[in-house]
Design a protein around this nucleic acid. Structure first.
Lengths: 214, 214
DNA sequence: TAGATTGTTAATCGATTAACAATC
DNA sequence: TAGATTGTTAATCGATTAACAATC
Protein backbone atom coordinates (compact mmCIF):
# COMPACT_ATOMS: atom_id res chain seq x y z
CA UNK A 1 0.00 0.00 0.00
CA UNK A 2 1.24 3.46 -0.82
CA UNK A 3 -0.19 6.95 -1.09
CA UNK A 4 0.33 8.89 -4.31
CA UNK A 5 -1.44 12.07 -5.27
CA UNK A 6 -4.03 11.53 -2.62
CA UNK A 7 -4.93 8.06 -3.85
CA UNK A 8 -4.16 4.82 -2.08
CA UNK A 9 -2.47 2.43 -4.44
CA UNK A 10 -1.77 -1.20 -3.73
CA UNK A 11 1.65 -2.33 -4.88
CA UNK A 12 1.60 -5.77 -6.54
CA UNK A 13 3.37 -8.37 -4.45
CA UNK A 14 5.44 -9.35 -7.47
CA UNK A 15 6.90 -5.85 -7.47
CA UNK A 16 7.65 -5.86 -3.76
CA UNK A 17 9.58 -9.08 -4.13
CA UNK A 18 11.91 -7.53 -6.65
CA UNK A 19 12.68 -4.26 -4.87
CA UNK A 20 15.36 -5.58 -2.50
CA UNK A 21 17.25 -7.02 -5.42
CA UNK A 22 17.15 -3.70 -7.27
CA UNK A 23 18.40 -1.98 -4.16
CA UNK A 24 21.25 -4.41 -3.68
CA UNK A 25 22.49 -4.05 -7.25
CA UNK A 26 22.19 -0.29 -7.14
CA UNK A 27 24.41 -0.35 -4.06
CA UNK A 28 27.00 -2.33 -5.99
CA UNK A 29 26.84 0.03 -8.97
CA UNK A 30 27.22 3.00 -6.65
CA UNK A 31 30.28 1.43 -5.10
CA UNK A 32 31.73 0.91 -8.55
CA UNK A 33 31.18 4.57 -9.27
CA UNK A 34 28.55 4.13 -11.97
CA UNK A 35 26.60 7.37 -12.24
CA UNK A 36 23.74 6.61 -14.56
CA UNK A 37 22.14 3.53 -16.05
CA UNK A 38 19.37 2.81 -18.53
CA UNK A 39 16.49 0.48 -17.82
CA UNK A 40 17.86 -1.83 -20.49
CA UNK A 41 21.28 -2.12 -18.88
CA UNK A 42 19.98 -2.35 -15.34
CA UNK A 43 17.33 -4.85 -16.35
CA UNK A 44 20.04 -7.07 -17.73
CA UNK A 45 21.94 -6.93 -14.45
CA UNK A 46 18.97 -7.79 -12.28
CA UNK A 47 17.46 -10.29 -14.71
CA UNK A 48 14.29 -8.43 -15.53
CA UNK A 49 13.03 -6.93 -18.81
CA UNK A 50 13.51 -3.21 -19.33
CA UNK A 51 9.79 -2.36 -19.55
CA UNK A 52 9.09 -4.36 -16.42
CA UNK A 53 11.77 -2.51 -14.55
CA UNK A 54 10.33 0.84 -15.65
CA UNK A 55 6.84 -0.23 -14.66
CA UNK A 56 8.03 -1.48 -11.30
CA UNK A 57 9.78 1.77 -10.50
CA UNK A 58 6.92 3.90 -11.69
CA UNK A 59 4.73 2.54 -8.95
CA UNK A 60 6.69 4.76 -6.61
CA UNK A 61 7.53 7.79 -8.68
CA UNK A 62 9.18 8.96 -11.87
CA UNK A 63 12.82 8.51 -11.09
CA UNK A 64 14.18 8.45 -14.63
CA UNK A 65 14.77 11.01 -17.27
CA UNK A 66 14.05 10.59 -20.94
CA UNK A 67 17.05 10.28 -23.16
CA UNK A 68 19.29 9.81 -20.14
CA UNK A 69 18.24 6.93 -17.96
CA UNK A 70 18.35 6.71 -14.18
CA UNK A 71 20.76 8.39 -11.83
CA UNK A 72 22.12 5.51 -9.76
CA UNK A 73 22.51 7.38 -6.49
CA UNK A 74 19.13 9.05 -6.72
CA UNK A 75 17.40 5.77 -7.50
CA UNK A 76 19.27 3.98 -4.73
CA UNK A 77 18.14 6.53 -2.18
CA UNK A 78 14.61 6.60 -3.53
CA UNK A 79 14.28 2.83 -3.18
CA UNK A 80 15.78 2.94 0.30
CA UNK A 81 13.09 5.39 1.23
CA UNK A 82 10.37 3.31 -0.39
CA UNK A 83 11.46 0.29 1.61
CA UNK A 84 11.63 2.30 4.79
CA UNK A 85 15.34 1.87 5.36
CA UNK A 86 16.20 5.53 5.82
CA UNK A 87 14.65 5.37 9.27
CA UNK A 88 16.47 2.59 11.11
CA UNK A 89 14.53 -0.35 12.50
CA UNK A 90 15.29 -1.73 15.93
CA UNK A 91 15.26 -5.50 16.20
CA UNK A 92 15.55 -8.21 18.83
CA UNK A 93 16.54 -11.79 18.23
CA UNK A 94 14.92 -14.69 20.03
CA UNK A 95 16.82 -17.96 20.06
CA UNK A 96 20.60 -18.02 20.32
CA UNK A 97 21.33 -21.45 18.90
CA UNK A 98 23.63 -21.96 15.95
CA UNK A 99 21.44 -20.05 13.55
CA UNK A 100 20.80 -17.29 16.05
CA UNK A 101 24.51 -16.85 16.61
CA UNK A 102 25.07 -16.70 12.88
CA UNK A 103 22.46 -13.98 12.61
CA UNK A 104 24.07 -12.02 15.43
CA UNK A 105 27.35 -12.09 13.57
CA UNK A 106 25.90 -11.19 10.19
CA UNK A 107 27.07 -7.79 9.05
CA UNK A 108 24.79 -7.50 6.08
CA UNK A 109 21.72 -6.18 7.95
CA UNK A 110 23.54 -3.44 9.79
CA UNK A 111 24.85 -2.13 6.50
CA UNK A 112 21.30 -1.92 5.22
CA UNK A 113 20.02 0.05 8.19
CA UNK A 114 18.83 -2.52 10.71
CA UNK A 115 19.83 -2.40 14.37
CA UNK A 116 19.93 -5.60 16.34
CA UNK A 117 19.77 -4.40 19.94
CA UNK A 118 19.76 -7.58 21.96
CA UNK A 119 19.00 -11.30 21.98
CA UNK A 120 16.92 -13.56 24.18
CA UNK A 121 17.17 -17.21 25.07
CA UNK A 122 15.68 -19.60 27.57
CA UNK A 123 18.92 -21.45 28.21
CA UNK A 124 20.62 -20.25 31.44
CA UNK A 125 24.02 -21.15 30.04
CA UNK A 126 23.58 -18.58 27.27
CA UNK A 127 21.84 -15.87 29.28
CA UNK A 128 24.32 -13.22 30.34
CA UNK A 129 26.78 -13.93 27.55
CA UNK A 130 27.78 -11.27 25.07
CA UNK A 131 28.25 -12.40 21.48
CA UNK A 132 29.71 -9.96 19.01
CA UNK A 133 28.65 -7.10 21.22
CA UNK A 134 25.10 -8.38 21.56
CA UNK A 135 23.97 -9.28 25.05
CA UNK A 136 21.88 -12.40 25.58
CA UNK A 137 19.03 -11.86 28.04
CA UNK A 138 16.57 -14.16 29.72
CA UNK A 139 13.43 -14.55 27.68
CA UNK A 140 11.28 -13.61 30.66
CA UNK A 141 12.44 -10.03 30.07
CA UNK A 142 11.31 -10.00 26.45
CA UNK A 143 8.02 -8.21 26.92
CA UNK A 144 9.43 -5.37 28.99
CA UNK A 145 12.45 -4.90 26.76
CA UNK A 146 10.41 -4.66 23.58
CA UNK A 147 8.07 -2.15 25.17
CA UNK A 148 10.92 0.00 26.52
CA UNK A 149 13.13 0.11 23.45
CA UNK A 150 10.99 0.95 20.45
CA UNK A 151 11.50 -2.46 18.89
CA UNK A 152 9.55 -3.04 15.72
CA UNK A 153 11.01 -6.26 14.38
CA UNK A 154 11.41 -9.58 16.19
CA UNK A 155 13.59 -12.32 14.74
CA UNK A 156 12.57 -15.88 15.56
CA UNK A 157 15.36 -18.44 15.54
CA UNK A 158 13.99 -20.89 18.09
CA UNK A 159 13.04 -24.53 17.50
CA UNK A 160 9.82 -25.32 15.68
CA UNK A 161 7.94 -26.23 18.87
CA UNK A 162 8.33 -22.87 20.55
CA UNK A 163 8.11 -20.60 17.52
CA UNK A 164 4.39 -19.88 17.78
CA UNK A 165 4.69 -19.16 21.48
CA UNK A 166 7.53 -16.72 20.91
CA UNK A 167 5.57 -15.08 18.10
CA UNK A 168 2.66 -14.54 20.46
CA UNK A 169 4.94 -12.91 22.99
CA UNK A 170 6.52 -10.64 20.41
CA UNK A 171 3.15 -9.58 19.08
CA UNK A 172 1.69 -8.83 22.46
CA UNK A 173 4.81 -6.87 23.36
CA UNK A 174 4.18 -4.72 20.33
CA UNK A 175 6.47 -5.60 17.41
CA UNK A 176 5.20 -4.68 13.95
CA UNK A 177 6.89 -7.46 12.05
CA UNK A 178 8.43 -10.89 12.53
CA UNK A 179 11.31 -12.34 10.61
CA UNK A 180 10.80 -16.05 11.09
CA UNK A 181 13.41 -18.78 10.61
CA UNK A 182 11.44 -21.63 12.21
CA UNK A 183 9.83 -24.06 9.76
CA UNK A 184 6.37 -23.11 10.88
CA UNK A 185 3.59 -20.94 9.46
CA UNK A 186 2.93 -18.54 12.28
CA UNK A 187 -0.54 -17.36 13.13
CA UNK A 188 -0.53 -13.64 13.85
CA UNK A 189 -3.04 -10.80 13.72
CA UNK A 190 -3.38 -9.49 10.19
CA UNK A 191 -1.82 -6.10 10.99
CA UNK A 192 1.45 -7.85 11.86
CA UNK A 193 3.77 -8.62 8.96
CA UNK A 194 5.65 -11.90 8.80
CA UNK A 195 8.48 -12.77 6.50
CA UNK A 196 9.48 -16.42 6.51
CA UNK A 197 12.90 -17.85 5.82
CA UNK A 198 12.01 -21.47 5.39
CA UNK A 199 15.43 -22.57 4.32
CA UNK A 200 14.62 -26.21 3.76
CA UNK A 201 11.98 -25.23 1.24
CA UNK A 202 14.69 -23.67 -0.88
CA UNK A 203 16.65 -26.88 -0.74
CA UNK A 204 13.63 -28.91 -1.78
CA UNK A 205 12.97 -26.61 -4.72
CA UNK A 206 16.58 -27.05 -5.73
CA UNK A 207 16.20 -30.80 -5.51
CA UNK A 208 13.09 -30.64 -7.66
CA UNK A 209 14.81 -28.59 -10.31
CA UNK A 210 17.80 -30.94 -10.39
CA UNK A 211 15.70 -34.07 -10.72
CA UNK A 212 13.68 -32.39 -13.44
CA UNK A 213 16.82 -32.14 -15.52
CA UNK A 214 17.46 -35.86 -15.35
CA UNK B 1 9.76 -30.26 -16.58
CA UNK B 2 8.09 -33.61 -16.20
CA UNK B 3 7.08 -36.49 -18.40
CA UNK B 4 3.52 -37.71 -18.35
CA UNK B 5 1.96 -40.09 -20.81
CA UNK B 6 4.79 -39.58 -23.24
CA UNK B 7 4.41 -35.82 -23.29
CA UNK B 8 6.81 -33.35 -21.78
CA UNK B 9 4.98 -30.92 -19.55
CA UNK B 10 6.47 -27.80 -18.03
CA UNK B 11 5.43 -27.25 -14.43
CA UNK B 12 4.61 -23.60 -13.68
CA UNK B 13 7.16 -22.06 -11.36
CA UNK B 14 4.34 -20.89 -9.10
CA UNK B 15 3.45 -24.53 -8.50
CA UNK B 16 7.03 -25.58 -7.81
CA UNK B 17 7.33 -22.88 -5.16
CA UNK B 18 4.38 -24.28 -3.25
CA UNK B 19 5.33 -27.96 -3.27
CA UNK B 20 7.78 -27.88 -0.36
CA UNK B 21 5.16 -26.28 1.83
CA UNK B 22 2.63 -28.95 0.94
CA UNK B 23 5.18 -31.60 1.75
CA UNK B 24 6.05 -30.05 5.09
CA UNK B 25 2.44 -29.84 6.22
CA UNK B 26 1.70 -33.36 5.04
CA UNK B 27 4.59 -34.51 7.20
CA UNK B 28 3.03 -32.81 10.19
CA UNK B 29 -0.37 -34.30 9.49
CA UNK B 30 1.17 -37.72 9.13
CA UNK B 31 2.88 -37.34 12.47
CA UNK B 32 -0.42 -36.36 14.03
CA UNK B 33 -1.97 -39.53 12.65
CA UNK B 34 -4.33 -37.87 10.19
CA UNK B 35 -5.23 -40.41 7.54
CA UNK B 36 -7.18 -38.47 4.95
CA UNK B 37 -7.82 -34.87 4.12
CA UNK B 38 -9.93 -32.97 1.62
CA UNK B 39 -8.56 -30.27 -0.64
CA UNK B 40 -10.70 -27.77 1.24
CA UNK B 41 -9.24 -28.66 4.66
CA UNK B 42 -5.68 -28.97 3.41
CA UNK B 43 -5.95 -25.76 1.42
CA UNK B 44 -6.91 -23.97 4.59
CA UNK B 45 -3.86 -25.31 6.38
CA UNK B 46 -1.40 -24.33 3.68
CA UNK B 47 -3.10 -21.07 2.84
CA UNK B 48 -4.17 -21.89 -0.68
CA UNK B 49 -7.63 -22.25 -2.25
CA UNK B 50 -9.02 -25.75 -2.66
CA UNK B 51 -9.24 -25.61 -6.48
CA UNK B 52 -5.70 -24.32 -6.69
CA UNK B 53 -4.46 -27.13 -4.52
CA UNK B 54 -6.20 -29.69 -6.72
CA UNK B 55 -4.82 -28.10 -9.86
CA UNK B 56 -1.33 -28.02 -8.42
CA UNK B 57 -1.39 -31.67 -7.46
CA UNK B 58 -2.89 -32.76 -10.76
CA UNK B 59 0.20 -31.61 -12.58
CA UNK B 60 1.86 -34.70 -11.19
CA UNK B 61 -0.90 -37.27 -11.08
CA UNK B 62 -4.35 -38.00 -9.75
CA UNK B 63 -3.68 -38.59 -6.10
CA UNK B 64 -7.16 -38.02 -4.77
CA UNK B 65 -10.36 -39.96 -4.78
CA UNK B 66 -13.80 -38.50 -5.38
CA UNK B 67 -16.01 -38.35 -2.33
CA UNK B 68 -13.09 -39.18 -0.06
CA UNK B 69 -10.26 -36.71 -0.44
CA UNK B 70 -6.55 -37.43 -0.30
CA UNK B 71 -4.77 -40.11 1.62
CA UNK B 72 -2.17 -38.20 3.62
CA UNK B 73 0.55 -40.82 3.55
CA UNK B 74 0.12 -41.57 -0.13
CA UNK B 75 0.22 -37.90 -1.03
CA UNK B 76 3.21 -37.29 1.20
CA UNK B 77 5.16 -40.03 -0.51
CA UNK B 78 4.03 -38.96 -3.94
CA UNK B 79 5.26 -35.43 -3.39
CA UNK B 80 8.51 -36.68 -1.96
CA UNK B 81 9.02 -38.61 -5.15
CA UNK B 82 8.05 -35.64 -7.31
CA UNK B 83 10.64 -33.50 -5.55
CA UNK B 84 13.26 -36.17 -5.86
CA UNK B 85 13.73 -36.76 -2.17
CA UNK B 86 13.32 -40.51 -2.19
CA UNK B 87 16.77 -40.81 -3.67
CA UNK B 88 19.09 -39.05 -1.24
CA UNK B 89 21.22 -36.15 -2.45
CA UNK B 90 24.83 -35.82 -1.40
CA UNK B 91 25.96 -32.33 -0.54
CA UNK B 92 29.10 -30.44 0.37
CA UNK B 93 29.30 -27.14 2.19
CA UNK B 94 31.80 -24.46 1.28
CA UNK B 95 32.48 -21.81 3.91
CA UNK B 96 32.54 -22.68 7.60
CA UNK B 97 31.87 -19.27 9.11
CA UNK B 98 29.01 -18.63 11.48
CA UNK B 99 26.35 -19.37 8.92
CA UNK B 100 28.19 -22.42 7.61
CA UNK B 101 28.44 -23.81 11.13
CA UNK B 102 24.75 -23.22 11.66
CA UNK B 103 24.01 -25.13 8.46
CA UNK B 104 26.24 -28.00 9.57
CA UNK B 105 24.25 -28.25 12.78
CA UNK B 106 20.84 -27.97 11.16
CA UNK B 107 18.92 -31.21 11.50
CA UNK B 108 16.08 -30.27 9.21
CA UNK B 109 17.73 -31.21 5.94
CA UNK B 110 18.82 -34.64 7.04
CA UNK B 111 15.26 -35.43 8.02
CA UNK B 112 14.14 -34.53 4.54
CA UNK B 113 16.65 -36.78 2.82
CA UNK B 114 19.76 -34.67 2.25
CA UNK B 115 23.24 -35.87 3.19
CA UNK B 116 25.87 -33.33 4.03
CA UNK B 117 29.09 -35.28 3.56
CA UNK B 118 31.77 -32.73 4.30
CA UNK B 119 32.68 -29.05 4.45
CA UNK B 120 35.46 -26.96 2.95
CA UNK B 121 37.14 -23.78 4.03
CA UNK B 122 40.21 -21.78 3.13
CA UNK B 123 41.08 -20.91 6.72
CA UNK B 124 43.86 -23.19 8.07
CA UNK B 125 42.51 -22.80 11.59
CA UNK B 126 39.28 -24.48 10.58
CA UNK B 127 40.69 -27.11 8.25
CA UNK B 128 40.99 -30.43 10.04
CA UNK B 129 38.33 -29.68 12.60
CA UNK B 130 35.25 -31.82 12.96
CA UNK B 131 31.98 -30.04 13.71
CA UNK B 132 28.94 -32.11 14.55
CA UNK B 133 30.51 -35.07 12.83
CA UNK B 134 31.30 -33.12 9.69
CA UNK B 135 34.97 -32.84 8.78
CA UNK B 136 36.29 -29.53 7.50
CA UNK B 137 38.70 -29.96 4.59
CA UNK B 138 40.98 -27.63 2.73
CA UNK B 139 39.26 -26.06 -0.22
CA UNK B 140 42.05 -27.15 -2.55
CA UNK B 141 40.59 -30.65 -2.26
CA UNK B 142 37.14 -29.58 -3.34
CA UNK B 143 37.36 -30.62 -6.97
CA UNK B 144 38.65 -34.10 -6.26
CA UNK B 145 36.20 -34.73 -3.44
CA UNK B 146 33.17 -33.74 -5.47
CA UNK B 147 34.26 -35.95 -8.33
CA UNK B 148 34.95 -38.93 -6.08
CA UNK B 149 31.82 -38.82 -3.93
CA UNK B 150 28.83 -38.43 -6.21
CA UNK B 151 28.06 -34.95 -4.91
CA UNK B 152 25.22 -33.23 -6.65
CA UNK B 153 24.58 -30.19 -4.48
CA UNK B 154 27.07 -27.58 -3.32
CA UNK B 155 26.17 -25.15 -0.54
CA UNK B 156 27.84 -21.76 -0.71
CA UNK B 157 28.25 -19.97 2.61
CA UNK B 158 31.35 -17.94 1.84
CA UNK B 159 31.66 -14.14 1.78
CA UNK B 160 30.25 -12.23 -1.14
CA UNK B 161 33.64 -11.67 -2.77
CA UNK B 162 34.51 -15.33 -3.18
CA UNK B 163 31.05 -16.72 -3.93
CA UNK B 164 31.34 -16.62 -7.72
CA UNK B 165 34.74 -18.23 -7.62
CA UNK B 166 33.47 -21.05 -5.41
CA UNK B 167 30.49 -21.49 -7.70
CA UNK B 168 32.81 -21.89 -10.67
CA UNK B 169 34.79 -24.55 -8.83
CA UNK B 170 31.67 -26.43 -7.82
CA UNK B 171 30.31 -26.37 -11.35
CA UNK B 172 33.51 -27.53 -12.96
CA UNK B 173 33.76 -30.31 -10.38
CA UNK B 174 30.35 -31.50 -11.49
CA UNK B 175 27.61 -30.49 -9.07
CA UNK B 176 24.10 -30.28 -10.52
CA UNK B 177 22.81 -27.57 -8.20
CA UNK B 178 23.97 -24.81 -5.90
CA UNK B 179 22.29 -23.64 -2.73
CA UNK B 180 23.62 -20.14 -2.37
CA UNK B 181 23.64 -18.05 0.80
CA UNK B 182 25.94 -15.29 -0.44
CA UNK B 183 24.21 -12.05 -1.42
CA UNK B 184 25.26 -12.42 -5.04
CA UNK B 185 23.52 -13.49 -8.23
CA UNK B 186 25.76 -16.26 -9.43
CA UNK B 187 26.50 -16.78 -13.09
CA UNK B 188 26.35 -20.47 -13.94
CA UNK B 189 25.71 -22.56 -17.07
CA UNK B 190 21.99 -22.89 -17.68
CA UNK B 191 21.91 -26.62 -16.99
CA UNK B 192 22.98 -25.93 -13.39
CA UNK B 193 20.21 -25.05 -10.94
CA UNK B 194 20.71 -22.36 -8.35
CA UNK B 195 18.54 -21.63 -5.38
CA UNK B 196 19.32 -18.42 -3.56
CA UNK B 197 18.80 -17.69 0.11
CA UNK B 198 19.25 -13.97 0.08
CA UNK B 199 18.29 -13.46 3.69
CA UNK B 200 18.62 -9.71 3.75
CA UNK B 201 16.08 -9.42 0.95
CA UNK B 202 13.52 -11.02 3.23
CA UNK B 203 14.29 -8.48 5.90
CA UNK B 204 13.90 -5.61 3.43
CA UNK B 205 10.56 -6.95 2.26
CA UNK B 206 9.48 -7.12 5.87
CA UNK B 207 10.56 -3.54 6.40
CA UNK B 208 8.63 -2.46 3.34
CA UNK B 209 5.49 -4.17 4.53
CA UNK B 210 5.78 -2.62 7.99
CA UNK B 211 6.27 0.91 6.70
CA UNK B 212 3.35 0.40 4.34
CA UNK B 213 1.11 -0.10 7.39
CA UNK B 214 2.09 3.22 8.87
C1' DT C 1 17.93 19.69 -33.19
C1' DA C 2 18.38 14.52 -33.38
C1' DG C 3 19.02 10.54 -30.68
C1' DA C 4 18.02 8.21 -26.71
C1' DT C 5 15.27 6.59 -23.31
C1' DT C 6 11.61 7.23 -20.28
C1' DG C 7 6.54 6.78 -18.75
C1' DT C 8 2.38 4.75 -19.90
C1' DT C 9 -1.32 2.51 -22.49
C1' DA C 10 -2.78 -1.58 -24.87
C1' DA C 11 -2.02 -6.52 -25.93
C1' DT C 12 -0.47 -10.83 -24.40
C1' DC C 13 0.57 -14.24 -21.40
C1' DG C 14 0.26 -16.95 -17.17
C1' DA C 15 -1.85 -18.02 -12.86
C1' DT C 16 -5.94 -18.26 -10.01
C1' DT C 17 -10.69 -19.00 -9.24
C1' DA C 18 -15.33 -20.57 -10.43
C1' DA C 19 -18.17 -24.09 -11.86
C1' DC C 20 -19.60 -28.56 -12.67
C1' DA C 21 -19.58 -33.21 -14.64
C1' DA C 22 -17.37 -37.48 -13.28
C1' DT C 23 -17.11 -40.85 -9.85
C1' DC C 24 -15.97 -42.95 -5.49
C1' DT D 1 -28.04 -45.09 -3.69
C1' DA D 2 -27.03 -40.24 -2.04
C1' DG D 3 -23.52 -37.27 -0.51
C1' DA D 4 -19.04 -35.78 -0.93
C1' DT D 5 -15.22 -34.44 -3.24
C1' DT D 6 -12.23 -34.92 -6.95
C1' DG D 7 -10.37 -33.69 -11.77
C1' DT D 8 -10.81 -30.54 -15.35
C1' DT D 9 -12.61 -26.98 -18.41
C1' DA D 10 -13.92 -22.21 -18.86
C1' DA D 11 -13.85 -17.49 -16.96
C1' DT D 12 -11.44 -14.11 -14.44
C1' DC D 13 -7.80 -11.84 -12.66
C1' DG D 14 -3.05 -10.19 -12.32
C1' DA D 15 1.48 -9.74 -14.16
C1' DT D 16 4.50 -9.23 -18.12
C1' DT D 17 5.67 -7.60 -22.54
C1' DA D 18 5.10 -4.77 -26.68
C1' DA D 19 4.68 -0.46 -28.60
C1' DC D 20 4.97 4.28 -28.93
C1' DA D 21 4.13 9.15 -27.80
C1' DA D 22 6.30 12.34 -24.64
C1' DT D 23 10.39 14.62 -23.58
C1' DC D 24 15.05 15.32 -22.01
Amino acid sequence: MIHKEGKTIVIPTAVIKRLPKYHRHLGKLLKKGVEKISSREFGEIVGVSAPQLRQDLNHFGNFGQQGYGYNVEKLYNALAKVMGIEKKSNMVLVGVGNLGQALISATDFKRRGFNLLTAFDINPRLVGMTINGIKVRDIINLDQYVKDNDINIGIIAVPEESAQDVANQLVSAGVKGIWNFAPVDLKVPKEISVENEHLTEGLLRLSFKIKGEM
